[in-house]
Design a binder for these strands. Structure first.
Lengths: 225, 225
DNA sequence: TAACGTCCGATTGTCGGACAATAAGAACAT
DNA sequence: ATGTTCTTATTGTCCGACAATCGGACGTTA
């Protein structure tokens, strides 16, 4: 009884999500090995179920599987990160443009509300709330871009970037600039101006990339020391 | 002995590839259920290894996993196919543009050779060779686009589209037109003209989509009958 | 001491067997 | 025709096992 809710998740699905969250939250160090026996104990699942979950994570490139060494957290080179940002800029630009053309009045209100919330949140400097706002904004944007593939692909990219950002990121100066950019994007969408929306979205990602680069170089120095 | 070559593939990897090839080749009908016991026997692997391979295929969206019903071949709606084509157009356009900017003389020769081969092949009407030419051309193009993420994403999309095309496609008239388009793309790349290359590549995909649409509608009729 | 060969513990890759839970279809009753 | 119960095929999950493999510790030799 009490099976209400669609929650009837399978064990593999549950472990997949738990592990994914852990990886994105930065629980593991880049390059760290994931020993199956340990994870089984910590998660309370069998090795079979665990390995199925790990295979899914591998296909999403959230872990590397090295033959006879097992799964480990990938170390992202700057070149790879840059490639991700470039692709993200292309796709988010496209998504923003499509969104500006197709969005309905109701979702424009949602965006407006999110932007207003963000303005308040920026002052508190609460980075969890900040992330929640950004996520909410992008959910609406992607939902309205009208192309499920773009949405899915971008979600995958976001996952990998969050994961890189988990450590060593969130430059202080970016917060305010980030708000300005999101607001500008909102205005372009509200005016249903696809060209402007694309340009702003692309520039936003490129700015994020520059910020990430600095953080990345810093991280390199730490590693050498 | 004789372990020369890096081929030491794991069982799961082997089954993954075999199943992927089978799916892309159209061995299974859309909507068909894949019974684990059968596959285990046919492939000669244990259920554990098979299920790991299936999870990988699931993450690449080549199969659907329905809880308590197991894996089955997805039925692609036209809307989904269209989304894939749209994303493909965007990415291939970008890849072509980047390739035109960055490609070296040697790889231009490769493209030239491929185009010449294709001209011969078109007359023989051998669709296997035709596909091989197209693949070779795109391999060079993607390799020179300078962005590994774009390459990987496009490869995933190609897989899913091939899979859709396996049955009921390859319109006869498209063969010649396809050659013309590829030749035009080659010329633009040779001239290192990114704008032209992007435009041609995008148009090429859009043409392919239109051809696919007709084939798709035909397929629908068959299903009703 | 530096290069090399050998051994060893830890961990993975793989298998087979087991069994409860579930979905789908068949047989049945209303 | 509709609803109910039974049956069966199949999945989801766990366990235990074992050879293969990797990386490091150790000892040997030059």
């Amino acid at each position: 009884m009490m099976d209400l809710r669609v929650s009837r998740k399978t064990v593999q699905q549950g472990t997949f999500e738990k592990l994914k969250d852990a990886i994105l939250a930065g629980v593991f160090q880049p390059g760290e090995r994931l020993v199956e026996a340990n994870l089984c104990e910590q998660l309370g699942v069998s090795r079979a179920s665990l390995r199925e979950a790990l295979r899914s994570l591998q296909s999403e490139r959230l872990i590397d599987f090295i033959p006879n060494r097992g799964p480990q957290i990938p170390v992202l080179s700057w070149k790879e990160a840059e490639d991700i940002y470039d692709l993200r800029a292309l796709l988010e630009g496209e998504a923003a443009a499509r969104c500006a053309s197709a969005i309905g009045d109701h979702d424009i209100s949602s965006l407006s509300a999110t932007v207003h919330t963000l303005r308040r949140v920026v002052k508190t400097n609460n980075s969890a709330d900040k992330l929640k706002c950004a996520t909410a904004f992008y959910d609406v944007l992607l939902h309205n871009c009208g192309n499920e593939m773009i949405k899915q692909t971008l979600n995958g990219l976001h996952a990998r970037i969050n994961f890189l950002r988990a450590r060593s990121m969130s430059l202080p100066g970016r917060t305010k600039a980030s708000y300005e950019e999101m607001n500008a994007l909102y205005l372009a969408i509200k005016d249903r101006d696809p060209k402007a929306a694309r340009k702003i979205a692309q520039q936003h990602v490129q700015n994020a990339r520059e910020a990430a680069r600095e953080a990345f170089k810093e991280g390199q120095k730490d590693n050498e020391a």
